[in-house]
Nucleic acid binder design. Structure first.
Lengths: 196, 196
DNA sequence: GTTGAAGGTGAACGTACCTTCATCTTAGCC
DNA sequence: GGCTAAGATGAAGGTACGTTCACCTTCAAC
């Protein structure tokens, strides 16, 4: 018996609750609120995660995974013959729109950012040492996608991964109406597109 | 005797200290730290400002004023015959670079944003009801400047005040190297520039 | 120089967190 | 069913804030 069934169930509930609340409130989500939403006592959170930081790390890891999947899906589309331009634009739009509903995702994107030199990034506390693997996965897919875009002449030749991550980081959150957020994306894409 | 001399002196010291610390730490600057740096006791802060929020408001008002001055100066240059494009670009660069050193300035720019409907903006707590006058000043100067730019064909015809404020809001802070920040501005300006 | 009020002080209070731990509960093997 | 270790509980501890207030200090008018 490695882990008891109820323990696993509680762990899942806690993560789900944390995802929910962190999406809304970011690092300000409290342990007590998460515990309440998960239907357990605070002590239980600490049995599964030594400190709040570790729980946040797990949530952000999760979001990083989502990010990797979205990017890999986009890459697969291109591999299947889709035009690079629209795919990249679509990916950008999708990620940006999810930002509004998930602050953890934004933090996740930040992790891809300007290298390890930016350990403390975006709301500082969310900087996580977490599994590099998932970060690397997202980074690699995005890098490949960018190379294709540049080759296809869909983006300025000098666009880097850092550029894209930085611009994504600037996407406004919930406080800005969706229409404005789309406008942000439009302007950024225009800025990243090769002038002819 | 309206205000005692020492009272005025302390008020100034408090504001100066608050400017310093808020520039660095934003809303997280503590009252005690501000008091220490100002060389007074906490109680004195509360004599001059009923609550922390009021002190923050005063600081942000100050920054809004700076913003207005920068914009008005730019407008004056144009009025004096300078080319609109470079002036606007320069203003954008200046403001963006100051963001890195002053979080209150960023908050101030946020106030010009998507109307009153966004009362709670940027770090929420910094939303201030403050003197509308100074906000209006900055808004009017920037609006005029944008109109000139569009007329001169230097910016896309559909660029609005909200657009510019939103893009300014996306400028990365201290955590991002200056070179990257400049790159952000480049990309945004490219995105806002009329395609011919 | 006296005096009254404006101004200043900082310990103490209230609150909201994260975290711990002695104690109780329960899953799952025999 | 009994047993025991894994798991859960939640009150209590610790910390870091913002804010208050009873008490002192100092300016400046006379």
């Amino acid at each position: 018996m490695a882990v008891r069934a109820d323990a696993q169930r509680n762990r899942d509930r806690i993560l789900a609750a944390a995802r929910d609340l962190v999406a809304e409130a970011g690092v300000d989500a409290t342990m007590e609120d998460i515990a309440r939403q998960a239907g357990v006592a605070v002590g239980t959170l600490y049995r599964h995660f030594p400190a709040k930081e570790d729980l946040l790390a797990a949530v952000v890891d999760d979001s990083t995974d989502q990010l990797a999947e979205l990017t890999e899906a986009a890459l697969a589309e291109v591999e299947r013959g889709a035009a690079v331009g629209p795919v990249v634009t679509g990916l950008f739009r999708t990620v940006a729109s999810r930002y509004a509903d998930d602050r953890a995702l934004k933090a996740a994107a930040g992790r891809l950012g300007p290298g390890a030199d930016l350990g403390a990034h975006l709301d500082a506390e969310l900087a996580v040492a977490g599994p590099e693997s998932v970060v690397r996965r997202a980074m690699e897919a995005l890098t490949t996608l960018l190379e294709r875009s540049v080759t296809a002449g869909e983006l300025r030749a000098d666009v880097t991964l850092d550029d894209v991550v930085m611009m994504l980081d600037g996407v406004p959150g919930r406080e800005v109406p969706a229409a404005m957020r789309e406008r942000y994306v439009d302007i950024v894409i225009a800025g990243l597109t090769a002038r002819t």
